[in-house]
Design a protein around this nucleic acid. Structure first.
Lengths: 212, 212
DNA sequence: AGATGTGAAATTCTTCACAGCG
DNA sequence: CGCTGTGAAGAATTTCACATCT
């Protein structure tokens, strides 16, 4: 089964909606309902569910609990796996707060920072270690994902260390494209780029309306 | 000139690289050099520059200062325009710190929060207003972009208010797809989705290597 | 009637490949 | 030559449209 990044993103979004609906007691859902809850089309939803082998009934739609279980199977990591967060500045704290509040699916196992004032603290229920202990920690409890929330200059060196410890995928918030070996995945979240894009479309749309 | 979102994202990334190189005194650059600095291909770079009407010379490549000026023309907002930030929790503070540190191109004009303990403070050089004053502030100094960094429940209501005040584009960090009228742009940054995607590819790649 | 599952078309985006310049 | 500019090919992704089921 080969799933594109786009499909995975939508599955994750579907699951969030479906969990809420399941919590509200809803048992079944049609593709057009699931699509309407987000920015998607019914055909897209059906295609994605086809990709993960879920099948619905024309009369009753898709069974929400079964659908959730199947998405869990596809997305969730093996038990014990999780992420390490590097960098406990404002952004790192925001990420911890966010994941603790919303996210049981993929635990943040530990946080690391180079600032001695932060290490030792427990922030949002997550222990903050000195970054020197990175290798030691990962030997003892391996993580498959590294979340990079350090300043620009520190991103590449710490990524190299994580790759060396076997981390296979990165979520990178530093505004610099990480160099990693083949077979290591990087998801870049570039906030400055996203803001400039948003600003661009704020005008582009205005101009479009004026001219047209 | 019709530019896709992908092209805009790359232009923003190019500019960041080019500014650094210009600061280091570099005057000219070839498409393969600019591509190598990020994850892109030379053909992609040339195509993007073609789209914005920049032209280089086979012998000397592209002139960096002229290129930067042209990207500025395309991306930068009219003077006086900017963004408002709604929500000054951990994430909002991280965004302010980030934009102040990195970002002269698109100013954050003001921040808003509903917590009286935060309003009145100046955080990262940006005044934090009570969210009740939103309409009043925007009447006096209109902004074209709204950055939504509030909890899930508050995102849609505050977006509606901003749309009503004429905000044309949103950068949304809340884990809920915003409903906006036609002609209003939304860029979603969904951190939970991105983390799940990263986690998925951490396994997917491992499994791929094992099986193959 | 109104939904699903899915080939096939359409669209969007990226890469190829090469003529032509300096 | 090596690089640019770009038509054309190719890949990836989305949407259409319809046979089929209930």
């Amino acid at each position: 089964m080969r799933l594109s990044g786009r499909t995975i993103e939508r599955l994750s979004a579907y699951r969030r909606t479906l969990r809420r609906l399941q919590g509200e007691g809803k048992q079944r859902i049609f593709s057009h309902e699931l699509a309407a809850a987000q920015h998607f089309t019914p055909a897209q939803v059906r295609r994605d569910l086809m990709h993960i082998g879920v099948t619905g009934s024309p009369a009753r739609g898709y069974e929400i609990p079964a659908l959730n279980e199947r998405i869990d199977e596809v997305l969730d990591p093996p038990p014990g796996d999780g992420a390490v967060l590097i960098g406990v500045g404002h952004l790192g704290k925001a990420l911890l707060a966010y994941f603790v509040r919303h996210h049981a699916h993929f635990p943040v196992l530990a946080a690391f920072d180079s600032d001695p004032a932060k290490t030792g603290q427990v922030i949002q229920g997550c222990r903050c270690h000195p970054v020197d202990e990175l290798e030691q920690f990962l030997k003892h409890s391996p993580a498959s994902v590294g979340i990079i929330a350090v300043p620009e200059e520190a991103a590449q060196p710490v990524t190299d260390r994580l790759v060396h410890c076997g981390v296979r995928a990165f979520l990178n918030f530093a505004p610099v494209p990480l160099r990693v070996p083949d077979g290591v995945f990087v998801e870049e979240i570039d906030i400055a780029v996203s803001l400039e894009k948003t600003a661009y479309f704020a005008h582009a749309m205005r101009q479009h309306r004026e001219t047209h």
